[in-house]
Amino acid sequence: MQKVIKFLTTLIFLFVIVVFYFSLNKDPSYQTNSLVGKKLVELNLESFDGDYSLRTKDFKKNNFTLINFWASWCSPCRVEHPILMSLSKSKKLKLVGINFKDKKNNAKKFLNELGNPYNLIAKDEIGKKSVNFGIYGIPESILVNKEMIVIKKFIGPLNTRDYNEILKIIN
């Protein structure tokens, strides 16, 4: 009995230390990457000009859609914009931009200045709709397939590595 307890105690401590060791090299900050593989449902977004409402069926037409959340007040969005512009050249990918907590005029100015990469633009003035997508800060981009299943989430501005990755996935 005593031996068993001694053995178990040592084992528990060993286990804890091993777990600590492996956790050391992990990033303690949280990213919503665990949501990859989930299906997006209940989409109901008003289009940018307010004349059209964006539904799930709009996504079914294309094999892949990149949903990008942006705003004119967000400076990292400017940084990633050229990448979105290059992505818009790809025929296999549709880009849906969701204008997040923004003023319409400012958003238009932003697009006139830097170009419009989006096939469709929707707006989320209060930011409540974006909660459905699990968005917590912009820019964020979600790559979904035909079935609206999340393939990849990009948190923060897209960079060239992300760009290559997206091209790899869609081709």
Partner: peptide, 13 residues
């Protein structure tokens, strides 16, 4: 934060 404000609205809804 902005995020907290939004979540509060959604929770109220």
């Amino acid at each position: 934060s902005d995020f907290a404000q939004t979540i509060k609205l959604v929770v109220k809804d």
